[in-house]
Design a protein around this nucleic acid. Sequence first.
DNA 1: AATGAATGAGCCTTCATTCAT
DNA 2: TATGAATGAAGGCTCATTCAT
Lengths: 208, 208, 208, 208
Amino acid sequence: MAMVSRTTTSNRPKGRVATRQPASRARLLAAARALFVERGYHATRPQDISRTAGLGHGTFYLHFADKQACFMAFVEEARAEIDAAILGNAAKATDLPGLVEAILLAIYDYAERHPGVLVSVLSNEAVIAAAGSGNSILERWGEEWGERLKQQARQGLVARGYDFAVVGQAVVGAIHQASLASFERSRPKAALVRNLTRFITRALTPED
Amino acid sequence: MAMVSRTTTSNRPKGRVATRQPASRARLLAAARALFVERGYHATRPQDISRTAGLGHGTFYLHFADKQACFMAFVEEARAEIDAAILGNAAKATDLPGLVEAILLAIYDYAERHPGVLVSVLSNEAVIAAAGSGNSILERWGEEWGERLKQQARQGLVARGYDFAVVGQAVVGAIHQASLASFERSRPKAALVRNLTRFITRALTPED
Amino acid sequence: MAMVSRTTTSNRPKGRVATRQPASRARLLAAARALFVERGYHATRPQDISRTAGLGHGTFYLHFADKQACFMAFVEEARAEIDAAILGNAAKATDLPGLVEAILLAIYDYAERHPGVLVSVLSNEAVIAAAGSGNSILERWGEEWGERLKQQARQGLVARGYDFAVVGQAVVGAIHQASLASFERSRPKAALVRNLTRFITRALTPED
Amino acid sequence: MAMVSRTTTSNRPKGRVATRQPASRARLLAAARALFVERGYHATRPQDISRTAGLGHGTFYLHFADKQACFMAFVEEARAEIDAAILGNAAKATDLPGLVEAILLAIYDYAERHPGVLVSVLSNEAVIAAAGSGNSILERWGEEWGERLKQQARQGLVARGYDFAVVGQAVVGAIHQASLASFERSRPKAALVRNLTRFITRALTPED
DNA sequence: AATGAATGAGCCTTCATTCAT
DNA sequence: TATGAATGAAGGCTCATTCAT
């Protein structure tokens, strides 16, 4: 008892000595996320982030090398969340149409639960990675799709004869642009999912 | 007298009254194009454009409302060139694979003859049109593809049952991202064309 | 008459078209001089200089690459003034003691007519030229003294056998530090001149 | 026992209760010295000093009022070392040339054994003592030389009739600037010593 | 129509110092 | 005595745009 109360209240041998830091970083990242989503990369100043987080201007640079590094951290965070969401949904699928649909639904579900995040990440990333760095999130997803499809082709679930490095990117590009246009025009999600699923499935289903 | 008439008539398109306004605008636009392609939107200052064009700093604002308007003019110019190139090639095609391939070749041919222009237009556009303006070149192309496909579906050349507003965007997105990734990695163009043509054709070919 | 009035008032074919610039530069330099003397290099911000000159913040960078370049311009201006003053006085001298005294008086006269300038130049220069650049004003003066003495040695007015590259620096160093200490302690100028003249003269007078 | 008593009594002024405060101060000072010499005053942050000393950032302010006080402590330490070196060498000299040479050699010897220290002290001091504080090391040395020469004048070893407050500063100034210029240009030390010795000796030797 | 000097809001970042632990 | 996260004033500089000529 004595030990417990000591440990949890006053002393905290190590648990808190260096502990305000992680909290600060988390608060900064949360503030950054909110502002990047709301205003975009360029319109968000490190100062705004700090103030929103309730911290001093200089504290920002204790946790991020610069504004760009902070944005990258936000991007990475979002990417991890989305990947997790996709993985969760994709596991349940058994056939190709099921897989495509599961992934689309996972993405749109995430986009609804985190409004603006996906758009912010994808559109501001272009601002930063001066054209042609080849490391965008979209391209990484394209590669992942490529890998996934290559494996499914081996199992006969996807047509052979494709260069999946190309096709993976094509699938992600198709999803990206069709979704963006659809959301911007507030079109119903169901039609989007149905058409995209059919489009991708037909392109990839093995002949016969 | 002789001097005056010489000065006012000779090598200027419409040279009517006094000075050479159209020439100035054209020179500014050419300079802007070169600089936007070479350095990107943000790294190009109106001042740089004027000086490159051999004109005074203030002259820029005589011809463009602001920097953004100048960039849009460049985008529009490029778009018109590309559309013309595509239209020329697409006319020759008779079946769907032929059409897709013709269009792809037209685009890549343009990209080779005007290095950097396409990438500059597409990547810098994102910087400007703060997420969600819905007017990007890519989306316009998506709409055009939608129209085209809808017509071909009526003729039985393309599968029915699609919402072509969605599918048009998907096609353009697929082309865009696959091409970008391919070029960044310096992959052979032939494989890109082949895979993309097959991907799109299979997705769109009518059943049976 | 008509021509004269035209030229002096309205048109000014060329005299004024590009003319507000030199005036601005001069005003900035004057303001910089006043502030560098009054507050020192570090305590003077480019902004302060511009405001003191009655100009906008950005105008400063139209005329100077950066703060340091502005300070260098001030240093150079002062150096030219002092060199001119010294040359004027030194010409009258006939023998070595006369020369030394003439130079000392020229320097102290300048220092009185331009209070603080000399001290500011010499002390702030150290701040800028990170130790060991070897281009300080004092060293340039040392070199000039070296040249002067070498010539006088050839004429038999100064002792031979010296390496005047060393001795020139020694003379300037002696003058500099003795003068600085003297002024800081508000000691009478006469004693300073008398002792310094005697010191230098004895060191340099040819034997016999 | 021996160790304990040594630790608690010997080399710490007041070492009483528990921990190693003096050790901390000494480590900070050593770190400061290394960094001031290597990077200069402005480029060295209290934080760097603390970390280099293996101590926490805040500890710095337990031992020094501020950054400037720390630099002064470094200056004082170096001054004491140099004074000791000079005193040791100067004692052996019997005549004026011998004395001057002995002192010069002591200084250059120190400069070689402690590379950068002298230059760092002298050049950074100027940065700190905003023009005209009248307390620089050089001026203190000038005063000491003044005293020394005054005494020697009483003994007939140095010319009378000088105001040694002025001449002391002149001697130090001559040495300082000639040496600095010489080192910067990597000139041979021998010529420097010879010329400086001759210069000062001739200026100060009694007539006849 | 053309000029280019002038503008000043705004940007990102640094660093000496404090203070709760 | 020791710590190091936090602070925020201050810094130098850029650039899209205006306007007197």
